[in-house]
Computed example of a mutant assay.
Amino acid sequence: MHLKSEQDSGFVYSGLFNYLLRKLATAELEKIEVAIRAKMIYILSHQYGLFWYSNPSLFANQNRHNASLIKLKEGI
């Protein structure tokens, strides 16, 4: 790749930096998401039992809960 000026090379390095930073941040956020989800499941399982996810009283929105259960059953 031939760069026309120093300004062009700065733009390329800036874009590369942004890409790498975004990739690093996304990877770390995914780790945080998995850790939070695992902790949530651990707590709910110990407090409400193994099948806590099937108890509609634990969810604020019954329609979303039912839709989630349907998707879960279809995936099995």
Rank of each mutant, 00 (worst) to 15 (best):
M1C: 11
M1S: 12
H2E: 12
H2A: 10
H2K: 15
L3Q: 07
L3P: 12
L3W: 07
L3T: 09
K4H: 11
K4S: 10
E6A: 10
E6G: 11
E6L: 12
E6Q: 10
E6R: 12
E6H: 12
Q7H: 12
S9Q: 13
S9C: 13
G10V: 06
S14P: 05
S14W: 12
G15L: 14
G15P: 06
L16D: 05
F17V: 05
F17S: 09
N18L: 11
Y19Q: 09
Y19E: 15
L21N: 09
L21H: 04
R22V: 08
R22G: 09
K23A: 14
K23P: 08
K23E: 14
K23D: 13
L24E: 14
L24G: 06
L24H: 07
A25Y: 07
A25G: 09
A25Q: 10
T26A: 12
T26N: 10
T26W: 06
A27P: 08
A27N: 10
A27H: 10
A27E: 11
E28N: 08
E28Q: 09
L29T: 03
E30F: 02
K31F: 02
K31S: 03
E33L: 04
V34M: 07
A35V: 02
A35Y: 00
A38H: 09
K39H: 11
K39S: 14
K39Y: 07
K39T: 07
M40I: 03
M40L: 12
I41C: 00
Y42K: 13
Y42S: 15
I43F: 03
I43P: 09
H46D: 13
H46A: 14
H46M: 13
Q47R: 13
Q47A: 13
Y48G: 03
Y48T: 01
Y48N: 07
G49L: 06
G49V: 03
G49I: 00
L50Q: 13
L50E: 14
F51R: 13
F51T: 08
F51P: 02
W52A: 04
Y53Q: 01
Y53R: 04
Y53P: 02
Y53M: 08
S54R: 10
S54W: 07
N55I: 02
N55D: 10
P56A: 01
P56F: 01
S57P: 02
S57D: 09
L58E: 00
L58F: 03
F59Y: 00
F59L: 01
F59P: 01
A60R: 04
A60Y: 04
A60L: 09
N61A: 01
N61Y: 01
Q62T: 09
N63V: 00
N66G: 05
N66C: 00
A67Q: 06
S68Y: 01
S68F: 05
S68K: 04
L69T: 03
L69E: 01
I70L: 02
K71Y: 02
L72E: 04
L72W: 07
L72G: 04
L72N: 05
E74V: 04
E74R: 15
G75M: 11
I76H: 15
I76K: 14
I76M: 15
I76N: 13
I76F: 15
I76D: 13
I76Y: 12
